[in-house]
């Protein structure tokens, strides 16, 4: 009995946190989405969302988030795999995590210098004879910088699941005559799929609503839902429309979460 009581006590901060900082904001967002710009109750924002402008924006946000997640995954999986094979795993892992401690804005500004017309990338291209290219304010730079920023979050869960993998299973596969590729396809990958899924979640969802990089690195050549939300809240002060876009973002995130969700049995 007492055990149950103390357990409930411990639940209080958690429940309060969830209620105040997760449920209440979502309800508020939902509430605001039903008001037009003059403060009248209406569904006009939802109507507006289904016009070509916002649908196109949704699609392009999706496309960029998809590319960012895919490229991160392609880079992160082999990296994580190699990491588990190195001697000083923890040191290497730390080196990958350290850049994520630096402020995002600082990193973005650094890329302004690196990718600029007179930046080091272009000096290098000049030296090897390719000649100066426009890198800043292109799709390439946007995706490159986003991948750079998100990659530690992709590597970590994959590394953890690879690290927990029982090496005897691989030995067993080898003994039973599986080729390296088959071992990877039938043994390693299925056993680390949970790491891949949570990595994708941690990258895809924030990538959908990126907004600062779209201006700094892509020069507003890329418009995502996040950019539109920011504009509606700060410039137009059309909180209703901003909230409506946020509602759709939340729905998309829930769908994505349940789609990639891990069904764990047991505890």
């Amino acid at each position: 009995m007492e055990n149950k009581f103390t357990r409930n006590i411990y639940m209080v901060p958690y429940a309060l946190w969830i209620a105040l900082f997760v449920i209440a904001p979502i309800l508020l967002v939902l509430y605001y989405s039903f008001f037009d710009i003059e403060g009248n109750l209406s569904l006009i924002n939802y109507q507006k969302f289904f016009t070509p402008v916002y649908l196109k924006m949704t699609l392009s946000s999706f496309w960029y988030a998809f590319l960012i997640t895919l490229i991160s995954l392609i880079v992160a999986y082999p990296t994580a795999y190699l990491l588990t094979k190195t001697k000083h795993k923890q040191l290497w892992l730390l080196l990958i995590i350290v850049p994520s401690w630096i402020n995002l804005l600082l990193k973005a500004y650094a890329f302004l210098g690196i990718f600029g017309t007179y930046g080091i990338t272009n000096s290098f291209l000049e030296v090897i004879g390719i000649g100066s290219q426009q890198i800043l304010f292109t799709d390439f730079s946007f995706i490159f910088v986003s991948v750079y920023i998100f990659i530690p979050f992709m590597i970590l869960p994959i590394f953890n699941s690879l690290n927990e993998l029982n090496p005897t299973l691989i030995d067993a596969a080898n003994d039973l005559g599986a080729s390296k590729w088959t071992t990877f396809r039938r043994v390693i990958f299925p056993l680390t799929i949970d790491g891949v899924k949570s990595g994708c979640q941690v990258v895809f969802i924030p990538a959908l609503s990126l907004f600062m990089l779209t201006r700094l690195i892509a020069g507003n050549r890329v418009i995502t839902l996040g950019t539109a939300i920011e504009q509606h809240f700060l410039v137009t002060q059309d909180w209703g429309m901003g909230s409506t876009i946020a509602v759709f973002l939340i729905i998309i995130m829930f769908l994505f979460m349940s789609f990639t969700g891990t069904r764990k049995r047991g505890i």
């Binding site: 500004y109 302004l112 600029g116 017309t117 007179y118 426009q134 800043l136 304010f137 201006r215 700094l216 892509a218 020069g219 507003n220 050549r221």
Partner: peptide, 16 residues
């Protein structure tokens, strides 16, 4: 080339 915020000061001064 781009639509930017306050960075425009640095970018133009650097002949971007």
């Amino acid at each position: 080339k781009a639509i930017v915020g306050d960075e425009i000061k640095i970018l133009i001064a650097n002949e971007e």
